[in-house]
């Protein structure tokens, strides 16, 4: 698992790859904490390269969403594989977090 990020206009795009489970959820949380700290308005989490996320990983996404909401920043996730999207649907988190099909679509919404 690795988290990298870059600026795209006003938004930070963070990419996470591999598996996020109980063993590395803390590392993922620290990666996102750095992104949240640097952010100024909007964060997009691109999950295109994410192969698996456990409930411990979902909790980290949820924490990020809460933190950003408190900051008054926007937050969205994009490019979920079918199985990851299923995890968000089953847990009901698709009703909590904005989900977009592609990075372009998400950035248009976040930067617009």
């Amino acid at each position: 698992m690795q988290t990298e990020w870059e600026w795209k206009d006003e938004a930070i795009v963070a990419r996470v790859d591999g598996r996020v489970d109980g063993a590395n959820a803390r590392e993922f949380q620290q990666g996102l904490a750095a992104v949240i700290k640097a952010s100024a308005g909007a964060v997009l989490l691109d999950m295109e390269k994410l192969s698996y996320i456990s409930s411990a990983g979902l909790r980290v996404v949820l924490l990020a969403a809460k933190e950003l909401r408190t900051q008054g920043s926007k937050f969205a996730i994009c490019s979920l594989s079918a199985s990851i999207l299923e995890v968000f649907k089953i847990s009901g988190f698709d009703q909590i977090v904005q989900i977009y099909g592609s990075q372009d679509e998400a950035l248009a919404a976040l930067n617009g």
Binding site: L58, L62, K89, I90, S91, G92, F93, Q95, I96
Partner: peptide
């Protein structure tokens, strides 16, 4: 599915 959200979230 009945589209419920995990408990403790919202």
């Amino acid at each position: 599915l009945t589209r419920g959200v995990a408990l403790g979230v919202m």
